[in-house]
């Protein structure tokens, strides 16, 4: 199955990426390639650089790329603005989705969706057409319509915020989704809803990176590859059994690994 995937071109290539913030090196030569249809999991201790990697791929302005390249669909995107990356199909699901008081969730989703549709040369949706589309997508994450009239993420529970992230992913139809600890703060039922949503949205054309600490998300969504990060580097890559082994042995087991070549 994996060789079949690799017949097509990669969606995302991270090549020997080093990055810093305030002159402090965070990533120290990360390489990662995602092909269509692949699901990758990235695991590692807190502070090892997992979230930073996701933010840098999404274009966070606080980080400087000091070496290496990020290629999306074959094009170098190092210098693209975050919105250009998003419009072209890179989605970042936040570990802590941001609350934006006073901005209605419905309008926020509509403006975002239209930005992506414009890039895809699809017709932009007016409020009425968008309502129809969003109603359909709400089903995927089992969210109530009432969430749309509230301010973005304001007053949402942890689980509701994560479902709202997956709703955005469903609307934006990205080529690659990086989901940063989407499972954190979710109870068992919410985790199943979120995981089932991710599975429904993903396809043979898309790639997914799951950043997680726990096996429980990977029980719901089986990854093709599991990467272990430590101190800004990927130190081990394996199949889904690597996550099971980590669960059993803890990160101490990885302490003696060095960066994979």
């Amino acid at each position: 199955m994996q060789s079949k995937m690799k017949e097509s071109d990669p969606i995302l290539e991270v090549e020997n990426l080093s990055a810093s913030t305030d002159n402090l090196p965070i990533l120290k030569g990360v390489s990662l390639t995602i092909y269509p249809g692949e699901i990758h999991a990235i695991m590692g201790r807190n502070g090892c650089g997992k979230s930073t990697l996701s933010k840098i791929v999404a274009g966070h302005p606080s980080y400087n790329i000091t070496n290496g390249d990020i290629k999306f669909l074959g094009q170098n995107i190092n210098s693209l603005e975050p919105e250009e990356r998003a419009q072209s199909g890179i989605f970042l699901g936040f570990q802590y989705p941001i609350e934006i008081p006073g901005v209605s969730n419905l309008e926020f989703l509509r403006v975002s969706t239209n930005a992506r549709r414009k890039f895809l040369n699809k017709e932009e949706l007016d409020t009425f057409d968008f309502e129809e589309l969003v109603k359909e997508k709400l089903e995927i994450v089992k969210m109530d319509h009432a969430f749309l009239s509230r301010s973005v993420n304001q007053g949402f529970s942890g689980g509701e915020k994560k479902r709202n992230e997956i709703l955005q992913m469903a609307l934006l139809e990205p080529k690659i989704a990086i989901l940063d600890e989407t499972d954190s703060g979710l109870d068992i039922d919410a985790l199943r809803i979120v995981a089932s949503g991710i599975k429904k949205i993903s396809s043979a054309e898309t790639g997914i990176i799951l950043i997680t600490h726990y096996q429980r998300l990977l029980d719901e969504i089986e990854p093709n590859y599991v990467h272990v990060m430590s101190d800004g580097q990927i130190i081990k890559t394996g199949g889904s059994d690597l996550a099971l082994e980590l669960e059993k042995k803890g990160y101490e087991w990885t302490d003696n690994f060095t960066q994979e070549t």
Partner: peptide, 11 residues
Amino acid sequence: ELFYMRTRGIT
């Protein structure tokens, strides 16, 4: 907040 909105394609 600005970065969050920009990751959704909003300029």
